[in-house]
Each structure stands twice: as structure tokens, then as C-alpha cells.
Design a protein around this nucleic acid. Structure first.
Length: 222
DNA sequence: GGCCAGGACACCA
DNA sequence: TGGTGTCATGGC
């Protein structure tokens, strides 16, 4: 049995540091986290670029935009109507509760902040943990579809665990290091994009030795 | 031309 | 609590 750190070191050695999250400010990071929900990051980049060109990457600017204009700016990211509502609701919340200061909101203790984020419409567990980790610098492991897929293939998850069970699985076994949490999630994403998407092309995969796709072709894969 | 992407929510049993 | 339908664009 190989442990989570062994997998991490192998991925880090292969891909190198990923330097996540790709955003110029914490607020931009939050917007990106909402826009990327079930959406290819390439499409999100187009939307972020539109917002930047429109100088609409602040809570005040997004809050002041007419809904239809905001929808047009973020249209490339898909689900643009509901995402426009979500980023605008979050912007309003910041303005009225923190005078627009995201930093003040993020300074809260992890548990309280996570609960407050989850209470926002459009911010679920993955988006909340992404914000906590990449914008807030809190020790909160991010679980996504790639995490479930990869570690099920590695035989470390059954595949039917819920979000918190998977999050706990990692947080109970990993050293409490921000840099580790930060890079690990990003490495899982790049690993799945390179090798575990669709029909995996296993040749050259840094985890080929451990992956059950190779060890047991009969096992069902998710 | 179909499939899928760095989910979340409403609704239902 | 858990399962299902809905939201939508763009790349491959």
C-alpha cells in the first residue's frame, strides 16, 4: 500500500509546482471559482478577460452592473444566467456585510468562514473549500470530480463516498501544510486532464504502476 | 456531431 | 440522506 504523500511526491516530481490559483486578486479568485463550476477553465478565462476589460473585477463594479450586461460578459463560461446571479449576490453580500472587503471576511476562523460561504447561494462544498484554500490561505482540502475519479482508480476510495468523507480522508492523513494542500489539488487536476480523462492513455502516466485500470482491467471504473 | 468540463440547487421520495 | 433534472458555452 502506498500512501498519499508518496502519490503526491510522484505527481509533484512529474508535473512540478502548479502555482494555483491563477488569479490576480482574491476577489478574482472567488469569481473564477464560481464561474468554473462544471465548466472548462478555458471558457472561464474568456469570461474573466471580459470582466477585466470592463473593469468589473471588484465587488462594487459587479454589484453596479445591470444583470443583462453581466450575463453577456460571462456568457462564455456557460450557465451564464445563474452564474451572473451568484457572483452578483456574493458581491452584494460583501458590500453590505464587509464594506466590500473580502480580506476581512477571509480573516475569520476556518469553521465559521466555511459555514458562512456555504450559506451563500451558488457556493457549494468544492467552491467553498477552493475559496478557503486559495483565497483565504486556510487549511481546507479541495475535493472535486477528478479527486474522486483518480483515487477510486488507485483503489484508495470506493467511489461512493460523499464530499465530506473524501475531504476527511485526505485531511486525516496529510500533514497540515498549506503548500501541500495547495499543490496537491492542482496536481490531481492536471493529472486527470493529462491521463485520466475519457479513455485513459496510460503510457507514460506517473501513476501507471499503482492504477487499477492497468492492474485490474475487470474492475469497474468511474 | 456528440461528449464533457476544476458544481450547485430545486424538487422529490 | 440520496437520486434526478436543469442550467449553457466552447473545445476536442
Amino acid at each position: 500500500m502506498f500512501d498519499l504523500m508518496k502519490i503526491y511526491r510522484r505527481l509533484f516530481k512529474y508535473y512540478g509546482p502548479r502555482h494555483w490559483w491563477p488569479a490576480e486578486t482574491p476577489f478574482e479568485m472567488v469569481i473564477g471559482a464560481i464561474l468554473t463550476q462544471n465548466t472548462n477553465w478555458k471558457n472561464v478565462e474568456k469570461a474573466i478577460t471580459n470582466l477585466r476589460n470592463a473593469k468589473a473585477l471588484t465587488p462594487a463594479a459587479i454589484g453596479a452592473l445591470p444583470r443583462t450586461e453581466l450575463e453577456e460578459l460571462i456568457r462564455p463560461s456557460g450557465f451564464f444566467r445563474q452564474k451572473a446571479e451568484r457572483v452578483q449576490l456574493f458581491s452584494h453580500y460583501l458590500r453590505y456585510n464587509y464594506r466590500g472587503g473580502l480580506a476581512e471576511m477571509l480573516r475569520q476562523p476556518l469553521a465559521a468562514l466555511r459555514g458562512e460561504l456555504l450559506a451563500r447561494k451558488g457556493i457549494g462544498p468544492e467552491t467553498a473549500d477552493s475559496i478557503l484554500l486559495y483565497a483565504g490561505g486556510h487549511l481546507s482540502f479541495v475535493v472535486d470530480a477528478y479527486t474522486r475519479r483518480l483515487f477510486t482508480r488507485l483503489g484508495l476510495l470506493k467511489g461512493d463516498e460523499n464530499y465530506l468523507q473524501i475531504r476527511n480522508f485526505f485531511m486525516q492523513r496529510l500533514p497540515e501544510e498549506l503548500r501541500l494542500y495547495n499543490e496537491y489539488h492542482a496536481l490531481i487536476v492536471i493529472q486527470c486532464k493529462e491521463y485520466c480523462r475519457k479513455k485513459p492513455t496510460c503510457s507514460g502516466c506517473p501513476l501507471a504502476d499503482e492504477c487499477r485500470y492497468l492492474l485490474d482491467q475487470q474492475s469497474p471504473l468511474s
